[in-house]
């Protein structure tokens, strides 16, 4: 179990970043990649996640260091703005490359 399987040059599935691989987190990180920052409400509307799901996925992404949540004050009220970190950008780019390689190979003749 400890030894990684050999996929003949294909990156092992173990190498796929599971934090990003989850669809809700992938879509969240993808949106944040193209936006400067957004609040929870905007992300909720875009992704159509529930408050609970959105919060738990953002917490996981924050724990991985892929996003950062900044408290800002809008009209004297605390407001959380979420943005992607450099680590998050790099992780998403690597994930895309790995997934492309992984999915492309079986269809190559």
């Amino acid at each position: 179990m400890g030894k990684k399987k050999d996929f003949s040059g294909i990156p092992a599935i173990d190498e796929i970043d599971k934090t990003i691989h989850e669809p809700a987190r992938l879509i969240l990180l993808s949106y944040l990649y193209v936006l400067d920052s957004a609040d929870y409400l905007y992300l909720k509307n875009l992704t159509e996640l529930t408050w609970g799901n959105l919060s738990s996925h953002l917490t996981k992404l924050e724990e991985a260091g892929y996003v950062e949540v900044k408290k800002e004050f809008v009209k004297k009220k605390p407001h959380s703005m979420v943005s992607i970190t450099e680590k998050g950008k790099t992780a998403l780019e690597q994930y895309r490359i790995r997934m492309k390689k992984l999915l492309k190979r079986p269809f190559d003749k």
């Binding site: 193209v34 936006l35 957004a38 609040d39 905007y42 509307n45 407001h79 703005m81």
Partner: peptide, 10 residues
């Protein structure tokens, strides 16, 4: 208040 706040890329 309904769609939230977003800051786009420069």
């Amino acid at each position: 208040p309904r769609i939230g706040i977003v800051k786009f890329s420069p």
